[in-house]
Simulated scan of single mutants.
Amino acid sequence: MLTRLSHATAYVLDQDAALAFYTDKLGFEVRSDVSMGEAFEGAGAGFRWLTVGPPKQPDVEIILSDVGMGRDEETAEQFRALVAKGAFGIGVLETDDCQRTYDELSAKGVTFLSPPAERPYGIEAVLRDDSGNWFSVTERREV
């Protein structure tokens, strides 16, 4: 029986740059940063298992996966272009104050695709990471 989601993947263009973005700008913690070696199950040279997560949610990890890992070069280039274009929404990051979070992250240089706005489910802003992936930043409406 499935019990919970533990990991989600954000495909990134540069793992070091993504690590800096997620830790320095979003305030996430490093959960794993392990080199799996050159011969790891066909994943490609220098496979790196890199995960981060929100400090108050230690059981959740976002895998910062290099777009080329485990892909042939042609597919990796196609994937790279889609990520850079902003074709992927990764998920929802909850906040207790969307406007304050928007102001704080904007001051740190985080790019937002939309400012805080009223939605049927609460207040939402949409941010973009340094690779092009986007997240909804949502303050849930009290029911």
Score class of each variant (00 low, 15 high):
M69N: 10
P55T: 09
L13K: 08
E104A: 14
P58Y: 00
S136E: 13
F112I: 09
P54N: 06
S35L: 08
V60M: 14
S35W: 06
F21L: 09
A18M: 07
S131Y: 05
S32Q: 14
P54W: 12
E61N: 12
P58D: 10
L19Q: 11
L82Y: 10
L19N: 00
F28P: 02
Y22I: 04
L93G: 00
A117Q: 15
G132F: 08
N133M: 11
I123Q: 08
G44I: 00
V110E: 06
G68E: 00
V67W: 02
T101E: 14
D130R: 03
A125N: 09
T23D: 01
F40A: 14
E29T: 14
V92S: 10
S106E: 11
F21V: 09
G89S: 11
R100N: 10
T23M: 10
T101K: 03
R31Y: 04
F28S: 01
F112R: 09
P58K: 10
G122L: 11
T75K: 11
E38Y: 03
D96E: 15
L127N: 05
E124N: 13
V60H: 11
G122W: 09
S131G: 09
S32E: 14
V83D: 10
G70M: 01
D24L: 05
D16M: 07
V92G: 07
A87C: 06
A76M: 06
E118I: 11
K108F: 04
R31N: 08
I63W: 06
V137S: 07
D59K: 10
A81M: 04
E73N: 10
M69L: 06
A107R: 08
A17I: 06
L26T: 02
A76D: 01
E73D: 15
G86M: 11
E29Q: 13
Y121H: 13
K25V: 00
D14E: 11
D103L: 02
S32T: 13
V34Y: 13
T101P: 05
P120R: 04
F88C: 01
E118M: 02
F47D: 10
I90V: 15
M36Y: 08
E38F: 03
Y22G: 03
E29H: 13
G132H: 05
R80I: 00
G44H: 08
E73P: 15
R48M: 07
E61Y: 03
W49C: 05
I62T: 12
M36R: 09
G132Y: 10
D97P: 07
T138W: 05
T23Y: 02
L105D: 08
T111Q: 12
V137E: 01
Y121M: 12
R119D: 03
D72F: 01
G46F: 04
R119A: 13
T111L: 11
E124M: 14
Y22W: 15
L64Y: 02
K25H: 04
V30Q: 11
L82W: 07
G68T: 03
K25R: 15
K85E: 15
A81G: 07
L13E: 08
F79K: 00
G89E: 12
S136T: 09
D72L: 05
A39H: 13
D16N: 13
D33P: 05
T23V: 07
T101F: 01
R80W: 12
Y102G: 11
F135P: 00
R119W: 00
L26V: 05
V34S: 07
L64R: 08
S65Y: 05
M69V: 02
P115S: 13
W49M: 10
E77N: 12
L13H: 00
D66R: 10
